[in-house]
Amino acid sequence: MPDIKRLSSRTHDLLGAALGLFALVMLISSPWQVDTTGPDPFYKGPLIFPLSVLSMMILASLPFWRRLLMPPPGARWHLDGQGVPWRTLKVLGLLTFFLAGLVGVGLEIATPGFLLAALWVVEERSKVRLVMIPVCVTLVLWIFFKWLLDVWFPMPLLFVPFSG
């Protein structure tokens, strides 16, 4: 049964077509991306499976290409018709900074920093929650990963010059 909302979204078609294009680029570049210098015949070698699945992806993307180039009447650019997810994009940006923060300033500073900023972005305004949640989550992570499981975290880049 065709889904009207999906068929009217050009973003769906763009994603499908982009995945197909990605598969095409990988397929064309696969002789250089896959080391085939081994003595194995083709059917035992490392290329047969990637070639098959990339071909499958390209074929599956054809309807998306068709709709992208010849959009049906009423088709427009939207993800699911529920607007642009600004808040999610902001949290996603913070998540990227969090990753960099883990390397740059370490778990103990990056985690509460990320949580505080993210909670503010999601419109949490209770001062108690804004303090307690970052502190508690950081404490739980520190206890589990650093103290109990003894997971190695690299020295924060910020502190390297002072480490002697």
């Binding site: 991306q33 896959v34 210098t37 081994g38 070698g45």
Partner: peptide, 8 residues
């Protein structure tokens, strides 16, 4: 199986 590098 072949220790070949793929898409690295």
């Amino acid at each position: 199986a072949t220790l070949s590098q793929r898409f690295t």
